[in-house]
Design a protein around this nucleic acid. Sequence first.
DNA 1: TATTTTGTTGCATAGGCAGTCAAAAATTCA
DNA 2: TGAATTTTTGACTGCCTATGCAACAAAATA
Lengths: 348, 348
Amino acid sequence: MTSAKRTEIRQAGTGERPTSYDVALLAGVSQSAVSRCFRAGASIAPKTRARVLAAARELDYLPNAMASGLITRRSNLVAVLISNLTNLYYPEVLAEITKRLSDNGIRVLLFTLQAESDVDAALDQVWRYRVDGAIVAARLSPAQLHDFARHHVPVVLYNRLGDGEPVASVCCDSLGGERQLVDRLVGAGHKRFGIITGPDDSYVSQERVRGAQVRLGHHGHHALVVNGAFDYVSGANGLKALMAQTDGNLDALICANDLMAIGAVDCARNIFGLSLPADLSIVGFDGVAPAFWANYRISTIRQPVRRMTEAAVAMVIERIEDSALPPEARSFAGDFIEGASARFTTLG
Amino acid sequence: MTSAKRTEIRQAGTGERPTSYDVALLAGVSQSAVSRCFRAGASIAPKTRARVLAAARELDYLPNAMASGLITRRSNLVAVLISNLTNLYYPEVLAEITKRLSDNGIRVLLFTLQAESDVDAALDQVWRYRVDGAIVAARLSPAQLHDFARHHVPVVLYNRLGDGEPVASVCCDSLGGERQLVDRLVGAGHKRFGIITGPDDSYVSQERVRGAQVRLGHHGHHALVVNGAFDYVSGANGLKALMAQTDGNLDALICANDLMAIGAVDCARNIFGLSLPADLSIVGFDGVAPAFWANYRISTIRQPVRRMTEAAVAMVIERIEDSALPPEARSFAGDFIEGASARFTTLG
DNA sequence: TATTTTGTTGCATAGGCAGTCAAAAATTCA
DNA sequence: TGAATTTTTGACTGCCTATGCAACAAAATA
């Protein structure tokens, strides 16, 4: 007897939103027929379909995604959790991800996290909305990761690993990237190295710093390390600290990301009056847009954002369709960008 | 008789997700009681509530947002449509908006638009998900705007107006901002002006260019205008074009945004060997992060992002709660940033 | 023409939760 | 202690759509 009492047809613009039942009434068919018109592959006669769609257009009817999600157990939503959007690198990632998901008929429920404590509140909503999957570029505790399994939400981590918990992930190869940079810097005869790290709790920073240190060690070198925060001023402050510690005897500066490399370049030129790359080599990581500006031309490793986002989206969709798929960690090599902020040839 | 047949209690982790009915079974209460425990202000005894919440925790139960949205006719979703996320300025806006909405218990359904044609597909989904409201930083046709009214979705435009259609909007005052810049440039004795516009279809670009031209006219000046696209290379190419057209006799360059101003600064220094602001004044608009970097220190108008996003979120929430509120256009003055890329004092 | 096959359609129900209403329990007051 | 409240509770219904099933019509085959 559902809705059967209603005899007046509702249409958009008159207060109430029309339902499939209203369309059925207008088109002179059953509600089921209307439903079938909006599901590709359903059994419906072409002429009926045409009549129904005409009625639907007249009433401005579109199926209610919440109602259909309720019954199909598919929300066609994927949660995207991103920690700091202001990172210059993430906007590109986010745009790519939403576009690719959208191409697959999936919408993005966005969560931007400022603080660690935001994560639990965000996850609470993730569970409530019964998202089909999640892509996470933020720090999760093992317990939080485990919750994804408990709630049957397939998750793909972006540029981080599961910290013990087995989980699908897409990463840019930090060790390989730093290895390329260090090998070239060492090959060009640099001897005194400095490193500016990212925040302590950043997995990406840890990996990049470790990668650089390991490879420097392999060559019999080591580096002075100062802490940064992945932002512009960290690069400048980091360079100042290193110059003070070394009395200005620094050959090469390895920054955990491009933004700090940019800050260091500006500082090297403006504060110390250095000429790059003659007096000092500076390298970064990421390949963000400003790194390519004429004024900087940062020597760096560019993350293959297209391929990485493509992989992340493909992985989450695969796991939505087959929840039995095992965790898989895909690592992509970055492209070396020679730039002009570092010297990669031996001196005269 | 809904679900009444089921006697085994389901819990997360065992295939099926638990429902309020499962929690009720475990806690020994009715489904209604469970529902009331998750709605603030509902009539429920403290001890019952405690027992229910314990049961819910044990089963990892959280209300299904789609089911409750279906019945309350509130999705607690707001659609956010953004055209080009790579704009350097929008990430900050997006982060602010999601945070503020989240503080009000509202989630963001994100749509990033690459092309004009994406809009209709996105709107289709906006209607299907029965979002409570929308914030749009993208170009909409009057017909598309009208659809929001037809579908009873309150909408707030960000940095654009309704083009005839009355609609709520939040803008940064382009005319006032350009007026400040032009007045100071003219006051400092600049005489030969150039303008680099944004894309033709950008409302923001049109307003800024018009604002600059109007004010220049007021002072008895005019400007050569070349087209840009709001990106870094547009700034460089624009400057080259203007230098060619004026035989290098250019006093001041007004760029429709900071990114182009940055491109122009790099070009002025590297290609033309100019010294800023002695040889040429360059101004932008927005106040994006790189504009403040030591190397640029762009003279610009900073949009009050915090206040603007706060207003946008407040306006959309007000209109969700009271759909009878009239359209309102709120315009915020930007802050003048002196910077160091333009000369604002008269020569010797 | 009788029968099978193919293709459409409608009925009825499920999906998970919120709100109404009346009954039950707890509380207050005399 | 009993009556009058007030609070709490549970049965039931509706929100809107998708789908299995049976009924049906149309087309194809024998």
